[in-house]
Simulated assay, not measured.
Amino acid sequence: MSVEIRPATPADLAAILALDPVARREERRHDYVSRAVAGDRGMDVRVLVLDGDLAGYAIMAEFFGHPFLERIYTGERFLRRGVAGALMANIEANFEGDRMFVSCNESNEVMRTLLVARGYRVSGMVENLDPGDPELFFVIFRDALDAAIEAATLD
């Protein structure tokens, strides 16, 4: 099995859009992903390629001057294979600054579980982005990531 995580290129756009059913049916998501791949507003898109197939993508941006994981998506046929975790590990190893933020809907139990397992903690909540489903914001500090990496190398 070969795994590659790398910055997205314009040549990846069609595969990213094909992977994400929301981007296929909603012009707003389609345009957002297209702008992100083009580097609009300094966004950085990472893709994970598994055995030659694009399996997931992540979009990084900025949130009040700090790195912010705006979107992470795993293709349906690649779920439960560690794609999101691998993308997050890559991002965590490479972000600049002392903290990084990410958000997800309160209803997104899978993402909330992943974040808590990776050491993120709730930092706040915003109502009314998706009515009836608040957006939870999480943070992880560089010190916590460094300590986790050190502990893993000592094991």
Rank of each mutant, 00 (worst) to 15 (best):
M1D: 04
M1S: 09
V3P: 09
E4W: 05
E4V: 15
R6M: 05
A8K: 11
T9Q: 10
A11W: 11
D12N: 05
L13F: 05
A15Y: 03
A18K: 07
D20S: 03
P21C: 07
A23K: 07
E27C: 06
E27F: 07
R28Q: 07
R29N: 04
D31Y: 02
V37Q: 06
G39E: 07
D40E: 10
D40G: 01
D40T: 12
R41S: 12
G42V: 03
M43W: 08
V45G: 09
R46Y: 12
R46S: 10
V49G: 05
G52V: 05
G52S: 05
A55S: 13
A55I: 05
I59S: 11
M60S: 04
A61N: 09
A61R: 13
E62G: 08
I72P: 13
I72T: 12
T74V: 10
R77S: 09
L79H: 14
G82Q: 00
V83D: 01
G85C: 12
G85L: 00
G85N: 15
N94A: 02
E96D: 11
G97Q: 01
R99C: 11
C104D: 09
N105P: 04
N105A: 10
N105C: 06
E109G: 13
M111G: 06
R112F: 06
T113E: 01
V116F: 15
R118A: 06
Y120G: 02
M125T: 11
M125E: 12
E127M: 04
D130L: 01
G132P: 14
R142S: 06
R142L: 13
A144F: 09
D146S: 01
A152V: 00
L154D: 00
D155P: 00
D155A: 00
